[in-house]
């Protein structure tokens, strides 16, 4: 984990309040899907965590959704601007040895799964993705997923694109779900909580988002309760957890 300054190569709006940033990272060591960087922002005292959404050489992609003044500031950074980052933080995903793998992305939560899909496809592991959002214009990165996934299934809560219904309802009906050896999910907490209860037999790993203090395990600000009733640090033990090991 290092602190570095990284120039913005591209800032593109993907949908309402959704932005994609490409940054050039000098001296980048290997990064794993699930890992994140802590971004210094102007409007808030603490950094904001963004997961790695994709990689091309020394360039990393991050996708953010504006939720407050901090992310709004980050959404407006211009090409050439230098950002202050710390990372990579957190434990990455251990890439499974065999597939097929199923990826379940809800809203902006699809972003970190894209990088996982790319790493899986590089390793020759088949993976299918369900990309879900509330409505059509909030669907992100669908074309990119198509480049690296065997199949990409789109669903929207309102039916404006792809299957109609909540991601968890759609997942239950898909034959890819039963075939998958392991599932990875990232999305809003209600989606992850619902996934816990649909009786999937395979392991499901959840990429968690949390309010973080430091992102480095120093402050214990980003707690998630485990099955053992203890709190675990999303930043250090996570952000990827076996869904059965955590309480949502």
């Amino acid at each position: 984990m290092i602190r570095l300054k990284a120039p913005v190569l591209e800032n593109r709006e993907l949908g309402p309040g959704l932005y994609s940033l490409w940054l050039a990272i000098e001296g980048l060591n290997e990064v794993q899907p699930g890992q994140f960087f802590e971004f210094r922002i102007r409007e808030r005292f603490l950094r904001r965590a963004l997961s790695i959404a994709d990689q091309k050489g020394r360039n990393l992609r991050f996708v953010l959704k504006t939720v407050g003044s901090g992310t709004q500031w980050l959404a407006q950074v211009r090409v050439g601007e230098m950002l202050d980052l710390i990372g990579p933080c957190g434990q990455g995903v251990k890439i499974p040895d065999q597939g097929p793998v199923m990826l379940l992305g809800g809203g902006v939560g699809s972003a970190p799964l894209l990088y996982l899909a790319r790493r899986l496809s590089e390793k020759g592991i088949k993976n299918d993705a369900v990309i879900a959002a509330c409505t059509r214009n909030e669907l992100i990165l669908v074309e990119e997923f198509k480049e690296v996934c065997r199949e990409v299934i789109v669903s929207t809560d309102d039916g404006s694109s792809g299957h109609k219904g909540l991601l968890t309802e759609v997942v239950r009906t898909l034959h890819q779900t039963t075939q998958a050896k392991v599932l990875y999910a990232c999305g809003p907490e209600p989606m992850l909580a619902a996934l816990k209860n649909i009786g999937l037999k395979q392991p499901v790993y959840a990429f968690l988002e949390s309010r973080m203090g430091c992102g480095m395990g120093l402050c214990v600000g980003c707690a998630v309760k485990g099955r053992d009733s203890r709190y675990h640090r999303v930043c250090l033990e996570g952000p990827v957890f076996d869904l059965t090991e955590i309480e949502l």
């Binding site: 102007r42 005292f45 603490l46 973080m212 600000g221 707690a223």
Partner: peptide, 18 residues
């Protein structure tokens, strides 16, 4: 001690509340 339930941290431009 397992500590308090989340969320445990909030910030503004010049403050942290934990």
């Amino acid at each position: 001690r397992i500590g308090n339930p989340p969320p445990r941290i909030w910030d503004s431009a010049e403050t942290v509340v934990n």
